[in-house]
């Protein structure tokens, strides 16, 4: 498997929409490498036949009835937006 390297960290940053200037990228690469190397001790744990545990879920299905309740006031919804026109959120060109 690909070890943590600068190229991979760039790729992760791109997927995460983060940009790392050269120096930060070098430090981050070193730190992530140490962390991931440490995590490799998990490889020593025998997990053959163990079901992954993603939820400590309540017993029984948790569903809500199909009932409409009032929505949020639009003014309140838009109040925190950095750019909006009173009706919609604004972004730079996002559609073709």
């Amino acid at each position: 498997m690909e070890p943590i390297n600068a190229w991979l960290v760039d790729e992760l940053a791109r997927l995460s929409r983060l940009s790392l200037p050269e120096e930060e990228r070098r430090a981050m690469t070193a730190q992530l490498k140490r962390i991931v190397d440490y995590m490799d001790i998990l490889g020593r744990l025998d997990t053959a036949g163990i079901e992954p545990l993603s939820h400590e879920a309540p017993v029984g299905n948790v569903l809500r009835p199909d009932v409409v309740e009032p929505s949020l006031d639009r003014g309140e919804l838009l109040a925190n937006a950095p750019a909006q026109d009173g009706e919609m959120f604004l972004t730079p060109r996002s559609v073709e």
Binding site: D85, M88, F89, L90, T91, S94, V95
Partner: peptide, 15 residues
Amino acid sequence: KLVHDPWIDQTRADY
């Protein structure tokens, strides 16, 4: 839904 508004050259988002 996204609608591009050419007048302001911004895309408007309706959720």
